[in-house]
């Protein structure tokens, strides 16, 4: 096994553990925004898609790069926008003014 692979594997395992730790604290109320937010994070493949586009030569390479770019950008843009839209709906109290509130 190469040193690079060992290093990448270390990063992978530690990130998984950090993920478990952080995400287990998210309340069930927010599980849908959590999932769509996590969805936007895996839109990071966009970085990889950009690298494909930079090395693409010939029609097949360009088609591959185009599809990868379109998929990844849809993932990033759509994911963040819809998560923001959802989270904007979570309010501590109803918009219309009420007497002294519980919160």
């Amino acid at each position: 096994m190469s040193a690079d692979l060992m290093f990448d594997l270390t990063v992978f395992v530690l990130s998984l553990l950090v993920g478990f730790e952080v995400i287990s604290k998210v309340p069930a109320t927010l599980h849908t925004p959590l999932m769509s937010g996590a969805n936007s994070i895996h839109g990071i493949v966009l970085v990889g898609a950009m690298l494909i586009a930079s090395t693409a030569r010939g029609p097949a390479g360009y088609v591959l790069a185009f599809v990868a770019m379109a998929f990844a950008t849809a993932n990033v843009v759509g994911g963040y926008v819809v998560t923001d839209r959802m989270l904007g709906m979570f309010r501590a109290r109803t918009p219309q003014p009420r007497k002294d509130g519980e919160s």
Binding site: D8, V11, G19, F20, V22, A38, I41, H42, V47, L51
Partner: peptide, 28 residues
């Protein structure tokens, strides 16, 4: 899958982001 793509491209941010999502999906 995204974390694996990070291994292929030797890009740590893809590995980290992929692992975070993998953890989230697994917990859910």
């Amino acid at each position: 899958a995204v974390a694996m793509a990070g291994f292929v491209l030797a890009n740590a941010v893809l590995i980290i982001a992929g692992a975070l999502v993998g953890a989230s999906g697994t917990i859910l």
